[in-house]
Design a protein around this nucleic acid. Structure first.
Lengths: 345, 345
DNA sequence: AGGTACTCGGTAAACCTTTACCAAGTCCGT
DNA sequence: ACGGACTTGGTAAAGGTTTACCGAGTACCT
């Protein structure tokens, strides 16, 4: 039996050969008419264009890519799309490149190092012009990043892997944490009543740097480490209260954690900011959906993604190639909101 | 000048020819050794494999796709990655297909009909084996969907376009809304104190159906329409209070709106659920991050994405092709939480 | 008229695979 | 010893583009 009634569609089928045959010219002429890469008589061009239109011709980008050794596309591998910060980042990367007519394809590695590997292999096999990676893991992703970097321009975003020879664009996490500590310092004697850090285990550079900066500023402050998740924040809050902590400042390593902390604290009947002040990191769009609105460190996402565009376009054009170990780090801002008012008087 | 010091990488370079030359066999042999598509002497195969490994050979999927007329990939076009429901959906689609060794590439159309078009053109040109679309707009996306469907198996997810001949997988929005109304009905005499609907303008089928179902159940209830956004919910809440509404039930068309409503209501000093009950739709993961936790209609996302896998795989295998107008609609559940307790006594 | 310069269409190679077909060899049965 | 079946490697085509090169035509100059 052929294909059934509600059957499926014909595969693209119509090629330049068909168009050429229809007009009675060679495929070179068709190619030139469509691309405009060489001047030709207007009359003939119009004929070709009309035929292409009539037959419903669509260029096969695989053929073109094979010939041109260029795909005008980029791969973006993110660890997890459910983390709002990453999905916002992904959206912004696409947006920044779309102006330059480069398609960004997003692949979620689902926090799985094997899937991250597969994503990169797939992108490389499909000959993307470049790769933007937010590595899953500070150590385990190292081989993946190097694999990518060995055949195509590769830029790590937001997180980076422990390896000196890879390009990176991100924000100055240590500086961000410094802003947080200074902000709290204005109101509280942090030595007498040190804040508590609710962070993530140092399996990614961002977790690492934020923890590190906090620990350096306030070596004696308590630190709890879990994952970058709402649930962890919630649990940490609950644990703290179980331990008898009923007030203070809580500094977190990410907004998703902070939101969990807020929920956990409120669930036990404590108030923010009256009992606990809470501070986030990343300033994800949805963070204002917390009540009260969340103080957070805002990453300069636009600057970051624009920098990536510059680097990639520079590499493709062949001029101004960014050195393999280029690191571009931007200073974040502290957005002070209700969860930690700046003047508590 | 050639390339500078920290220069960029060699384009993949090593092909089957190189491997063949290195071993001293033909490229057919290399292909067969790598694919195992035909038995061959173990000794020779090992040699080829060793050489491929040594030279760092990686298959060029463009060449393979051209030959095989198959890419083992799928395009997924979403309207907006910043909407947590869509990013969760995207993640789940990828996850469902990864088991079948099909790569899902995600493209954000950024709520722009032109960009949606470009995404589809790009995917088609790159010969994806199928396309999953969450259309931006109920009317304007129609041409885009039909374009996609004309050359590759195409399935609309969650939202669909006004056109009879397109495949769709989604949830029964009308049923979901019915659950909401019944739930409220148990506690309140809805005719005396009708709930207020805060929805989205009917530019997508989901907005449309949800509004419609609500209006049909409670023709006299007040309805406010805006966009699928936090800001709109916030503003609607504020407007209502300005108009003197100080208590009641608010039914929304999406969690993002509901979260905005909650924030807006709380900002004016009213309490949930004591003063206002609020109900969402979609049950996005982050919705529990509201305080109080949000009652919401949960879409059966797993069932939906698994169904898509079945349809696509069926089409690819050639058997059991789903008819072009197949509609698979699943019943959602109501998750009752604190924002609208079920027994208010 | 003959030469130069330019225009504009076609031919064919190249990009990288996979595989139908072929050829040569081995093995076995009769 | 010969033919059939099977094994196993190679050759070449095909998949869809783009473009270097070629060749034919035209226009213009001397």
């Amino acid at each position: 039996m052929e294909t059934s009634a509600g059957s499926t569609n014909k595969r693209s089928a119509v090629t330049m050969h068909d168009v050429a045959a229809h007009v009675g010219v060679s495929i070179a002429t068709v190619s030139r008419a469509l691309s405009g890469n060489r001047p030709m008589s207007q009359e003939l061009r119009d004929q070709v264009l009309a035929a292409a239109d009539k037959l419903g011709y669509r260029v096969n980008l695989l053929g073109r890519a094979l010939r041109l050794q260029r795909t005008f596309s980029l791969g973006l591998v993110v660890p997890d799309l459910e983390n709002p910060f990453f999905s916002a980042l992904a959206q912004q990367v696409s947006r920044s490149f779309s102006k330059s007519n480069i398609d960004v394809f997003i692949y979620s590695a689902d926090n799985d190092i094997k899937l991250e590997h597969r994503a990169i292999q797939s992108f490389l096999g499909r000959q993307v012009d470049g790769l933007v990676l937010i590595p899953c893991h500070e150590i385990d992703s190292q081989a993946n990043v190097l694999l990518a970097d060995s055949s195509v321009i590769t830029i790590q975003l937001d997180r980076l892997v422990r390896s000196p020879q890879t390009r990176y664009v991100g924000c100055d996490n240590r500086h961000g944490m410094k802003l947080v500590v200074e902000h709290l310092h204005r109101d509280v004697d942090l030595n007498r009543q040190p804040p508590i850090f609710v962070g993530a285990r140092a399996t990614s550079s961002s977790a690492h740097e934020r923890l590190d900066a906090f620990a350096r500023s306030l070596p004696n402050a308590k630190r709890l480490l879990g994952s970058f998740s709402f649930e962890w924040g919630q649990q940490a809050a609950s644990d703290l209260i179980d331990q008898g902590v009923t007030a203070g400042s809580i500094v977190t390593a990410a907004d998703v954690i902070a939101l969990g902390v807020i929920a956990g604290v409120q669930a036990r009947g404590y108030r923010i900011p009256e009992d606990f002040r809470v501070i986030g990191f990343d300033d994800i769009g949805v963070s204002f959906l917390a009540h009260p609105a969340l103080t957070s460190v805002r990453q300069p996402v636009d600057q970051m993604t624009n920098t990536i565009v510059d680097i990639v376009l520079g590499d493709i054009a062949g001029h101004g190639v960014a050195p393999r170990n280029a690191r571009r780090v931007f200073k974040p801002d502290l957005m002070i909101r209700e969860s930690s008012p700046s003047s508590p008087l």
